[in-house]
Design a protein around this nucleic acid. Structure first.
Lengths: 117, 117
DNA sequence: CAGTTGCGTAAGATTATCTTACCAGTACGT
DNA sequence: ACGTACTGGTAAGATAATCTTACGCAACTG
């Protein structure tokens, strides 16, 4: 499974973040309400980390979740030029208006898909 | 255990992001190399989501990981994620429909600006 | 040396997930 | 109406992951 790369990156980030936070595995285990061996296995990439656990790690170490996931800071890929224009229009709306519009759009789309209306 | 709240939030975000992306559970299951019932259970918050899986969901739906985690209600970032989803909805419309919608948006916007409603 | 702390790891018990299957609702064409 | 296909929820046994306890070892400290 060459897809474990991600898990290894996450494991390494967790370990280094813990060390930089000056915490022992035992202390972290207590804060996470886990047993110490679990922390050890997580840092060795022998155990998966759930999304909830990842959020808690980020809290404890005071880092962002995306950092623990080894993500690049900026990742807003906009391919279609028209989408940019549409998004720019939308960005001028208030959050409430945007909310309503999103629902309306979803409705329109499902109508198109099902051939209704 | 208000600790399951997080998982419920994540589950809801995944479900709504999937729907807005116009994908069925089966399609997502294929992309994730999981079985469809697993997607169903994840969206029902009956199964945990691993960090790796969360990253993959974010890829597939083209949203940020932190959005799926229900994090950082940084109004701007939140708005940005919703804009992405809205923009993708727009891309599914016909050119004519899109043009009309853009005009309607401009009208709505001017209404907002002038305090009308 | 004796005690402590931190970390890694093993093994059986426990729990979660997977896999297959069946079900109901919806939409569409015959 | 019918049959077919697509979507989503859920059950049950098989499978895989995690937990829990325990042991071992190295690096310190008094």
């Amino acid at each position: 499974m060459p897809d474990n790369d991600k898990q290894i990156v996450i494991a390494n980030r967790i370990k280094s973040a813990r060390q930089l936070a000056g915490l022992s595995q035992g202390q972290v285990a207590k804060l996470m309400k886990l047993h110490r061996p679990s922390i050890s296995e997580i840092e060795a990439a022998n155990r998966k980390v759930s999304a909830e656990e990842l959020a808690r790690f980020a809290e404890i170490f005071d880092v962002s979740v995306s950092y623990l996931m080894g993500e690049a800071p900026d990742a807003v890929a906009e391919n279609d030029e028209r989408l940019k224009l549409a998004a720019r229009e939308l960005s001028k709306l208030s959050p409430d208006a945007l909310n309503g519009l999103l629902r309306a759009l979803a409705a329109v789309q499902s109508d198109l898909n099902t051939g209704k209306k």
